[in-house]
Design a binder for these strands. Structure first.
Length: 570
RNA sequence: CGGGGCGUAGCGCAGUUUGGUUAGCGCGCUUGGUUCGGGACCAAGAGGUCGGUGGUUCGAAUCCACUCGCCCCGACCA
C-alpha cells in the first residue's frame, strides 16, 4: 500500500473524550472512530488488525475441528422465551418489533440459536461431538459503555459451541478450546492469565476467563504470585488475615450517638474495623436472612447468591426500619427475629466484636460470636481483599485490574433441557446434549494489545496483529525513489505486509505517524546510507536499528519478519 | 439509575461569570515558494445554523426553560 493513497486519519492531538490508553491511541492513530456511545467504526487500519486477529482465531479453531458458520444477529423472541433469557437479559438486550408486531432481539449471544440448530440436526450419538463457531456482531445495551472499544454495545465476538454425548466428551471439547485459546492469545502476542470465573447469566458448572492484567480493566483478579493461584474476585477464595486482639472482654451495650457506618464506629470506639461485624438484612422470597461479615470485608453478591439462591436481595433501609424498628446502621445479630443467620467464615470463633444493638444510637461491644450469636450457617460470602492468604499455599494474595478477552464455559444441559435438544444414545435412551460455550472478544484483543504495548509516542503492536508489518520511510525521496520502488515491490513479493510512506512530508513527520500507529518495523532509506549500499531497519518496540546491505535487504528482512511472526514477541 | 463534567470550524480550545459591531486562536485543509534523520518556515486563502427547540430582550454563543448527545466516577454487567 502506498500511504498517499491510503485512508489513515491520524490526529495530532489527543481526543478529549479518551482517557484510557487504548481508547486514546486507537482514535489518534486512525484505527477507529466513534459513531455513538459504545458504537465504533473500524477504519482501514483498525479493520486490518481485526482481520488479522480473526485469521489467527480461525486457524486455531479450525485446527481443533471446529466448523465456522454464520448465524443471524436478528433473532426471534420465541427462542429466548424458551430458555428463559427473554426475561433474564432485561434491559441489556436490544429489542425490536417487526412489521407484524412480532418481538425480536438483536442477539447478545447465541446459545439459543445454536441449540435450536442442534436440536433439529443432532439426533443420534453418531452425530456427536460437534463444535460450531462463528465470528459475528453481538449487541448488548450496556448500562455504561466505556474506555473506547473495551466495553461497547456492538462488538464482534468469536463464539463457539460444543455438543457432546457424554460429560467426558464435554471435558475434551472444553480442553480443546482451552488449548486453542492459549495458542490464539500467544500468537496475538498477549500476556494473559487464566482464572476461575463465575458463569453468571450463562449458567453451567465451570468456567474460566482469559484475562490480561491492565490498569484500565474492569474486572479484578486475585492472584498468588507464589503458586500461581488466580481467580476473579467474584469467585476467589482466600483466608482472611486474622483480626487484631479485641480490647473488649465483657459484653456491654454502649451509647454510640450518630455513629452507624463501620468507619464511624471504628473511630468512635477506637477499635479496628476488623473487630466490627456488619449485619445486613436480605430478603429471600418471604424469608428474612441476616448476613454477617467483618467490618473490613464486603459481601460478595455472587457468592451469596449461591448460598441464598438467586432471588436474594438486600432489604431496603425502609423495609428494615418498618420490620425491626431500627435504622440499618444499628442492626445486630442478638435477639433478632429472622428466619436464618448466615455468617462469613472469617467471623467464625471471633471474640470481643462490636455489633449493632438493634436499638437506635447503640452498639454492643465484647460479643462472642460462637456463644452469643445463633449462626445457622457459615459460608464464604465475602470478597477477597489484598493481603488475604492464598487458599493453596498461604502466600499473600494480590488484587489486580484486568480485562477479559476470552471466557470458556461448561454449560452442561441447561440449554438442551430447557429447549429440548435431545439425542438417542447407543442403548436407545433419549438424553440431553451436553454443551459448552466459548467466547473471544475480537476487538478487545486489539484494545488490550494497545493497552499492553504503548509508550509516550504511540503503540507498538505485535507484528501478528499490526495493520502493516513494515513501513518504508525515505529521508529524501527525490534521490532514492528508484531504489525504494524496487525494494517495495520485492518486499511485497516476499509476502511482507508493507506500507510505503510516499507522502510529501518531512521525515520527522513520517516518523511520528509511524510511532503512533505502531508499525513493528520501519525501513529507512537515506541517501547517506545508500551511498554505502546500506538501508536501515528500525524496531518500534525497543527503538533498536540495524544497517543492512541493499543487496541482501529483502532476504534479511523476510527472515526477521518470519522470526517475529513466529514469536509474536515484538 | 445516582453524582460530576462537557457540547463554539475536521481536531484541540478561548470567549459565557458581567448580553452589545463582522465569533477568535493553534493544528489541520487549499495555492505558491523555500525546506527535508523526529510533527519545518513564509505568504495568500477557504471553512461556523456557537448541539436543538422555545422564551426573555432593541439586541443572545452569553440569561431562563425544556430537550438531545458525549465523557468520567459509582451502581449494574457474559
Amino acid at each position: 500500500m502506498k500511504w498517499s493513497k491510503a485512508f489513515i486519519p491520524t490526529l495530532k492531538e489527543d481526543p478529549k473524550e479518551a482517557e484510557t490508553p487504548s481508547h486514546r491511541l486507537l482514535l489518534r492513530a486512525g484505527y477507529v472512530r466513534q459513531h455513538q456511545s459504545g458504537v465504533y467504526i473500524f477504519l482501514p487500519l483498525g479493520w486490518r488488525s481485526m482481520l488479522k486477529i480473526m485469521s489467527i482465531i480461525r486457524e486455531e479453531m479450525d485446527a481443533i475441528g471446529a466448523q465456522e458458520m454464520l448465524l443471524p444477529a436478528l433473532t426471534s423472541a420465541k427462542l429466548w422465551e424458551e430458555s428463559g433469557r427473554w426475561e433474564a437479559f432485561g434491559d441489556d438486550m436490544f429489542r425490536l418489533k417487526d412489521r407484524k408486531d412480532h418481538d425480536m432481539a438483536l442477539a447478545p449471544t447465541h446459545e439459543e440459536v445454536m441449540t435450536d440448530l442442534a436440536r433439529v440436526y443432532l439426533r443420534s450419538y453418531r452425530d456427536l461431538p460437534q463444535i460450531w463457531y462463528q465470528m459475528q456482531t453481538k449487541f448488548r445495551d450496556e448500562p455504561r459503555p466505556r474506555a473506547g472499544i473495551l466495553r461497547v454495545r456492538e462488538f464482534i465476538m468469536k463464539d463457539s459451541y460444543s455438543f457432546d454425548a457424554t460429560w467426558e466428551g464435554l471435558d475434551k471439547s472444553y480442553d480443546l478450546h482451552r488449548e486453542a485459546y492459549m495458542k490464539i492469545f500467544d500468537r496475538c502476542g498477549l500476556k494473559y492469565t487464566i482464572v476461575k470465573a463465575s458463569s453468571g447469566l450463562m449458567g453451567g458448572s465451570q468456567s474460566e476467563e482469559f484475562m490480561v492484567v491492565a490498569q484500565s480493566g474492569e474486572d479484578r483478579l486475585a492472584i498468588c504470585e507464589n503458586c500461581g493461584y488466580a481467580a476473579n474476585v467474584e469467585v476467589a477464595e482466600a483466608t482472611a488475615q486474622p483480626a487484631p486482639e479485641s480490647p473488649f472482654s465483657k459484653k456491654e451495650k454502649v451509647y454510640t450517638p450518630d455513629v452507624r457506618s463501620v468507619e464511624e464506629v471504628s473511630s468512635f470506639l477506637n477499635v479496628s474495623p476488623a473487630l466490627i461485624v456488619k449485619s445486613l438484612l436480605y430478603v429471600v422470597g418471604d424469608r428474612w436472612v441476616l448476613v454477617m461479615v467483618r467490618g473490613d470485608h464486603e459481601v460478595n453478591e455472587a457468592k451469596l447468591a449461591k448460598v441464598l439462591g438467586p432471588e436474594a436481595r438486600m432489604a431496603t433501609p425502609d423495609e428494615v426500619l418498618d420490620r425491626f424498628g431500627v435504622p440499618v446502621g444499628f442492626v445486630g445479630p442478638l435477639d433478632i427475629d429472622v428466619d436464618e443467620i448466615v455468617a462469613d467464615k472469617a467471623i467464625e470463633g471471633m471474640k470481643g466484636v462490636v455489633v449493632g444493638a438493634n436499638e437506635e444510637e447503640h452498639h454492643i461491644v465484647g460479643v462472642d460470636i460462637d456463644s452469643d450469636v445463633k449462626v445457622n450457617r457459615y459460608a464464604d460470602i465475602r470478597t477477597v481483599v489484598e493481603g488475604d492468604r492464598c487458599p493453596n499455599c498461604g502466600s499473600p494474595i494480590k488484587i489486580s485490574n484486568a480485562i477479559e478477552i476470552g471466557h470458556i464455559f461448561k454449560l452442561g444441559t441447561k440449554y438442551s433441557e430447557s429447549m429440548g435438544a435431545y439425542f438417542t444414545d447407543k442403548d436407545g435412551n433419549r438424553k440431553p446434549i451436553i454443551m459448552g460455550s466459548y467466547g473471544i472478544g475480537v476487538g478487545r484483543i486489539l484494545a488490550v494489545a494497545a493497552e499492553l504495548y504503548h509508550d509516550e509516542n504511540g503503540m507498538s503492536l505485535p507484528i501478528t496483529i499490526a495493520p502493516y508489518e513494515l513501513d518504508i520511510i525515505e529521508i529524501d525521496p527525490k534521490k532514492t525513489s528508484e531504489l525504494t520502488s524496487d525494494l517495495y515491490r520485492k518486499l511485497l513479493e516476499a509476502g511482507i505486509d508493507v506500507i510505503w510512506d510516499d507522502r510529501e512530508a518531512t521525515a520527522g513527520f513520517k516518523f511520528k505517524d509511524a510511532d503512533l500507529i505502531g508499525y513493528p518495523l520501519r525501513l529507512v532509506i537515506s541517501p547517506r546510507k545508500v551511498k554505502d549500499d546500506l538501508v536501515e531497519l528500525q524496531f518500534r518496540r525497543d527503538g533498536s536499528r540495524i544497517d543492512i546491505p541493499i543487496s541482501s535487504a529483502v532476504e534479511k528482512i523476510a527472515e526477521i519478519v518470519s522470526e517475529m511472526r513466529e514469536k509474536a514477541s515484538r
